[in-house]
Amino acid sequence: MRINCAQCLRPEVQCLCAYLPRLESRWQVLILRHSSEAKHALNTARLAVLGLKQCRLMDGEVFAQLPALLAEPGWQNWLLFPAASAQLVEQGVASEAGQRQRLIVLDGSWRKAKRLLHCNPCLAALPRLSFASPPPSRYRLRKVPTAEALSTIEAITYALEQLEGRSFQSLLAPFEALIEQQISAMGSKRYQADFAARNAHLDA
């Protein structure tokens, strides 16, 4: 019987807790994770929650409590999701004195993220943030259409670095360890056949 770590939920022999930081941030991060992603072996949302003190995770598809949460006084909410009207994180945001900032992140495939947006109309009214020039994703076990398609924890890390002007790279340490574990488990031959060519810029 496989025993999992109670915190990171990985098998005990692959526990990632030693890699987890506990970072403070001025921004609060709220991750809305599509319910189908919760048991995905490579889902990174939980790692973000464990590594970032001001981070909260909600699972589901329709979030009944979300309108009340977004209406809490003293908060400016931003949705991290592409749109023609989106403000670029690289440019930062202005806030009024005493106002706290919250970043809403949708966790799932693009199809599932769009589903979350459709099922929760209160999200459509939020101002959006997007990336102008994010770094290439280091998610070497995922086939994506472009290198700019970041995993959830990578997107949060990059957004916070731009918005707060400091490094959050230690947040990626358990993510990097997770990827290395999975590559080791699948074996070099399979990795080379399935993923290595499209990730040559990362493995060099």
Score class of each variant (00 low, 15 high):
122 C>S: 13
161 E>H: 05
119 C>H: 14
154 E>W: 01
67 P>E: 04
125 A>N: 07
130 S>Y: 11
135 P>D: 02
11 P>G: 11
117 L>Q: 09
184 S>E: 14
127 P>V: 05
175 F>A: 06
51 G>I: 04
202 L>K: 07
196 A>G: 00
5 C>R: 04
148 E>D: 14
143 K>C: 10
139 Y>H: 12
158 Y>L: 02
3 I>L: 13
72 E>R: 15
17 C>L: 06
27 W>K: 05
102 R>Y: 04
10 R>Y: 11
137 S>C: 09
135 P>K: 02
40 H>D: 10
93 V>P: 00
112 K>A: 13
44 T>C: 06
11 P>Y: 02
155 A>F: 04
52 L>V: 08
78 W>S: 08
178 L>E: 06
203 D>G: 00
120 N>H: 05
27 W>P: 01
168 F>A: 09
21 P>A: 11
180 E>N: 12
117 L>Y: 15
82 P>E: 06
26 R>D: 14
114 K>Y: 15
128 R>K: 10
102 R>P: 07
174 P>R: 03
167 S>Y: 03
166 R>T: 13
45 A>D: 04
45 A>V: 05
45 A>I: 04
184 S>L: 12
135 P>N: 08
202 L>S: 09
174 P>D: 03
43 N>Y: 02
68 A>F: 02
57 L>N: 05
11 P>N: 08
56 R>A: 10
47 L>R: 04
119 C>F: 12
132 A>L: 13
5 C>V: 06
130 S>K: 01
62 V>Q: 14
122 C>A: 14
181 Q>I: 02
204 A>M: 07
152 T>E: 09
169 Q>L: 13
33 R>H: 01
96 E>M: 09
203 D>L: 15
163 L>D: 01
10 R>F: 10
180 E>Y: 00
101 Q>I: 03
110 W>R: 05
104 I>T: 01
97 A>Y: 04
106 L>Y: 05
142 R>S: 06
182 Q>R: 12
20 L>V: 14
42 L>R: 15
168 F>P: 05
197 A>R: 14
197 A>V: 07
